[in-house]
Every structure is written in structure tokens, then in C-alpha cells.
Amino acid sequence: METRIALIGIIVENMGEVENINQILHEYGEYIVGRMGIPYKQKGVNIISIVMDADNNTISSLSGKLGMLEGISVKTVYSKSGK
């Protein structure tokens, strides 16, 4: 199976969804290369960056599940090719 590197950017405006975010990320833990969280207290949001190495369907599935949560914004950037 061919995999790609992807960077998923998450902006958390609804802190009530943090437990759901962590549960979803745990489900995809085997594909996550790294994770960085930044609390931006002045704006009342948290920013999370996730780096994944997975097939397109897995990356899209994770992004989609996160994007369906209320008050959560998600954008995904893919590498140009899998290696």
C-alpha cells in the first residue's frame, strides 16, 4: 500500500470537543508521526498540528471525523507523492 505524508492543521475553538479530538487521534495513532499543540490563550483557541504517514483514505477519514466536530476547523496538506 502506498502512503503519503500529510500535515493536518486543527484549530480548536470549542474546548468541549477536546476529549473527542483526543479519542479520534488515538484511533489513528499508528499513522501519526508527530503531534504539536499550541494554546493561544489571547485568542481563546488551541492549534494542533498532526503529521501522518498513511494512505489517502486513512488521512481523509481522520480529517473528516475531526471536521465534523462542532467548533473545530481542519485543513490537510498532502505531500506530492508517496515514497
Rank of each mutant, 00 (worst) to 15 (best):
M68C: 11
E2V: 13
I5H: 01
Y28E: 01
K75I: 13
K65Q: 14
L7M: 07
I72H: 01
S63F: 00
V77Y: 09
M15L: 09
M15K: 05
G44H: 10
G9K: 01
S49Q: 12
G37N: 10
I8S: 09
G71M: 12
E70K: 11
V33R: 14
V12D: 07
M36T: 11
G9S: 13
S61G: 13
S81I: 06
I10M: 04
G64R: 01
Y31V: 00
N22L: 11
S49G: 15
L62D: 11
V77L: 13
Y78M: 14
L62F: 05
I59N: 02
G37H: 14
I10D: 05
E2G: 03
I72W: 08
M15N: 08
G37Q: 09
I72Y: 04
T58I: 11
E70G: 09
H26Q: 02
G9A: 05
I32W: 10
N20V: 03
V33F: 03
E27L: 13
N22D: 15
L62V: 12
K80Q: 02
I21S: 01
V45H: 08
I50M: 08
E2S: 11
N22P: 06
G44A: 03
V51P: 01
E19F: 04
G34F: 07
Y40Q: 05
G9L: 02
K80F: 15
E70I: 08
N22V: 14
I24D: 03
G64D: 15
T76P: 02
R35Q: 14
Y40D: 04
E30F: 00
L25G: 04
G34I: 00
N57H: 15
A6F: 03
R4Q: 10
R35F: 12
K83C: 14
G64T: 12
G64P: 03
E70H: 13
M36I: 13
M1D: 13
D55R: 05
G71T: 12
R4V: 07
G82T: 10
I24Y: 12
L7V: 12
E27V: 00
Y40K: 00
